[in-house]
Amino acid sequence: MSAPALRGTGLAQRFGSRTLYHDVTFEVAEGEVFVILGGSGCGKTTLLRQCIGLLMPTAGSIALLGDDIYAAAAPARDAVLRRIGVMFQSGALFGSMTLLENVMLPLEVHTDLPPSARDRIARLKLGLVGLADAAALLPAEISGGMVKRAAIARALALDPPLLFLDEPSAGLDPVTSAGLDQLILELRRDLGLTFVVVTHELASILAIADRCLMLDRGAQGVIAIGDPKRLRDDSEDPKVRAFFRREAA
């Protein structure tokens, strides 16, 4: 049996004397769409930042594709981090570069591909997310939904097996958001990718997630983990029920 794509063990994060969460343990299997959810301020994005090597946890460990990233030496950690792709909430596209140049950047830095090959591969990635016609545009010239798609294309540049998406639906209309959900499912199906998605968009969670992990600020940790539809229908936890039924706390 292969190692999980991502494993978090006993994770904790404290800021000064304030504990955001503690003892967070989970695994994400290869090919799974795993959603981290919860209310505002519960630590979803913090947990994501720990998973992608940007924030060392106060306690616990993160194994990405079988390697403990915070225990590894810097070169080994960099090699592991090159095997993941990240889409940030704002897209974080470089405003001075066209979409094509944004996608080509990791290929230029990390591969020996000749320029024509980089161009071809970058166009292919943009085509994968439905932006083949927008290659020459700047990020400022495209819509919010297109920015998210372009950010996914850039995250796919080095063909990582594991993708992290931070709030992919934030700020998008329901139709665009549903299109993005569809894209995630297609990429998982066609390319066998594993997704870890941070979101609190209920419709997206139910549409894409195989399993989800729910954080809670009051409990300072995980209050539920499993199939979101089963959690919605069967959970005894009032906070979980309130979240899935959109009830005021």
Binding site: R120, R123, L124, G127, L128, D133, D190, L191
Partner: peptide, 13 residues
């Protein structure tokens, strides 16, 4: 499957 997906995505500029 990957080849077909790539073929569909690749649009010559």
């Amino acid at each position: 499957a990957v080849l077909e997906r790539a073929r569909a995505a690749l649009v010559e500029p």
